[in-house]
Design a protein around this nucleic acid. Sequence first.
DNA 1: CCTGAAGACTTCAACTCTAAAGTTCGAAGC
DNA 2: GCTTCGAACTTTAGAGTTGAAGTCTTCAGG
Lengths: 186, 186
Amino acid sequence: MSEPSDAAADAAEPSLEEQIAAYQREFQDLDPQVEQVVSALQRLNRRMNVAYGRQTATLGLSNAEWEVLKALVVSGAPYQLGPGELAKRLGLTPAAMTHRIDRMANEGLVTRERDEANRVRVIVELTDEGREKWLEAMRLASVFEEDLLQDLNGGERHLLGQVLTRLLRRVEDAQPDADGRLSDLD
Amino acid sequence: MSEPSDAAADAAEPSLEEQIAAYQREFQDLDPQVEQVVSALQRLNRRMNVAYGRQTATLGLSNAEWEVLKALVVSGAPYQLGPGELAKRLGLTPAAMTHRIDRMANEGLVTRERDEANRVRVIVELTDEGREKWLEAMRLASVFEEDLLQDLNGGERHLLGQVLTRLLRRVEDAQPDADGRLSDLD
DNA sequence: CCTGAAGACTTCAACTCTAAAGTTCGAAGC
DNA sequence: GCTTCGAACTTTAGAGTTGAAGTCTTCAGG
């Protein structure tokens, strides 16, 4: 019996269009144009994250580790941040950060040492190996991103960047970091 | 000493612009326009997820539960899917899905029963309460989304939706669901 | 029938995160 | 100088996830 005559045998997974149609069917007040933007945005972002995950995996790097590397690189030379600051930027609890640093220090991606000037603080510093890993991952990512936007001409890219930045500003203004560690990096 | 003369005392967290500038400084091959799009997209998406999380929390709903509700609603009446299918759509392992369904069944959001026509299968079905929860969450979400896009005129909204959809299609074509459970819903 | 293979879900152990203590250090007051 | 408070990090217990192994059902042969 290859035909799914029975109940929810093998409902095909919905495309973006089908999903939006379903939402409209179930919730009449929905503006389809708004939903198109929001749903496409979210789906796109997830697929991109999956792609990033695969790439970093080929370098023996987890997505979690990559985020720490990014935060340290963005902080600029000498690539040092404390666990608390890292936690805040990544949107994690300090406890989670402690463990993540443990692992990464074991792998040689970062070092952890007390700040001798203020011994309450700890300094997490990128190692040369960590920096090199970040660079490799970045090379892969930039190729992927360039390829992703390939079909957009300069004007479209610019406009897209501007509009997204406007939306971002709107969200950030609306949620003035309300509950503490919300911010993160990308 | 309020002045951060010492090491990495209190590096301010980077704005989007600062972040992109840092990437360029550390990785010359980067196209700033591409990075603007990608970084804004990712940051925006995270902030939105935080906002959704807060909203659903006010309804006593976790983000995880909300995603299950969405998948069931999108599947349409009679709002039934199997654990395996749900896991595939949400990008989870079947094991995780089993536990999630346990919790949600305990809370009365879904029911779980064997498919009598094919007793290997299990049918997860949305309860009336679950459907009502979804509706409440949807009402909150749609207000938020409408507000988010408020500053965009009709043309901009349309264009944004179209461009994002094009990008999505590109990613989906490039990664033909390569490793199994990649797809998810939004 | 009875057996073997495949499919769908569940169970188990290990891992990662959160929330809530706990620890250590530094700074201010007595 | 001793005490107390606050800040920064770590530890602990519990929730939720993954990957691998296990169970139950169906279906195709022998």
